Computed example of a mutant assay.
Amino acid sequence: MTQRPAPESTVRGAFGDLLPHLPLFPLGTVLFPGGLLPLKIFETRYLDLVTHCLRTGQPFGIVALQQGAEVRVAASGDETVRFEHAGCLAELIDCDSPQAGILQVRCRGLQRFTVSQIRQAPDGLWRADAVLQPADLAEPPKPEFQASVAALQRAIETLQGRDQVPFLTPYGLDDAGWVANRWCEILPIPLPTRHKLMMLPDPHARLQLVDGFLRRHGIVSD
């Protein structure tokens, strides 16, 4: 997978590329690099965020919720919200407005990051200083994982037959990180586990864990 250039506002530091004031979008899901994320936007804080990103081309950060709701449930905004201090950058790839005050958008996962100096604006939007993490190196899956690669290809063909397209093209079945990430997106695994897999820096280790899950559940075999 080709590594994209960092946003122009990125500051290069001793511990990685820093994105100051990155807007965050806490969700009850995990976005993986190269992943597809459809969103329905109707809250003012996120409508403003998406409008800004459409205008500037800048990404925002998706972080997995640990506690609280995606939508503000208290007018005072004082509900408790906790989320992971790491996530994945998202870029907007298309946007539609089916009715006034609602945006239907699709996002692509870019690069992983960790955050610090988290703060919340009066409008409820979270921001943080983010440090980008190294992207996966594009390396072929090891021979012992070829059964998992073949199973993913069959899963893609089955989903396409049902007019379901959960992955962005081009497909990267020759890329260990891509295969691991796509399995992580569709397997029924707990959200905290999914997050840990996303942040695992070694794509082969990630694929090994996925392969073990598939074998334990009889999805693949030698």
Rank of each mutant, 00 (worst) to 15 (best):
T169C: 11
D136C: 13
L39A: 12
G109D: 02
T114M: 03
R216K: 11
R127A: 12
L152F: 03
P122E: 07
T2F: 11
L37Q: 07
G34D: 05
G172Y: 06
C95F: 13
T44D: 15
E8V: 14
A138G: 05
L125W: 05
I62P: 00
R106C: 11
V50W: 08
G161D: 09
R194D: 00
D17R: 13
F60K: 08
Q58L: 14
P166S: 04
P192C: 02
I41Q: 07
G109M: 06
V131W: 11
D174F: 05
L22P: 06
T114N: 12
I41M: 07
E185G: 00
P188D: 11
P203M: 01
L54D: 13
M198I: 07
S148N: 03
V63D: 02
S9R: 12
L18R: 14
G57S: 06
R72D: 12
V50G: 06
L200M: 09
D136K: 01
L197N: 01
G13S: 12
A138H: 13
R182N: 00
L24W: 06
D78C: 01
K40Q: 13
G172I: 13
P98G: 09
L200W: 02
H217K: 07
I189N: 04
P23M: 03
R162D: 15
P201S: 00
E157R: 14
L92A: 03
R127H: 15
Q153P: 11
R108P: 02
A86S: 12
R72M: 15
P141G: 07
F60A: 13
A69W: 03
A130N: 02
R112M: 00
L19Y: 11
E185R: 01
A147N: 10
R112P: 04
L39S: 11
T169I: 09
P122V: 01
G57L: 05
E8L: 14
P59R: 02
W183A: 05
I186G: 08
Q3S: 12
D222T: 15
D202N: 04
Q146K: 07
A130M: 09
F25R: 02
F83Y: 04
W183V: 03
P166F: 04
D94E: 12
W178C: 02
S9N: 14
P98H: 04
A180G: 07
A138Y: 08
K142E: 14
T51H: 10
R162A: 14
G87K: 05
Q111E: 15
L37S: 04
Q160F: 05
G34M: 06
E91P: 00
H85V: 08
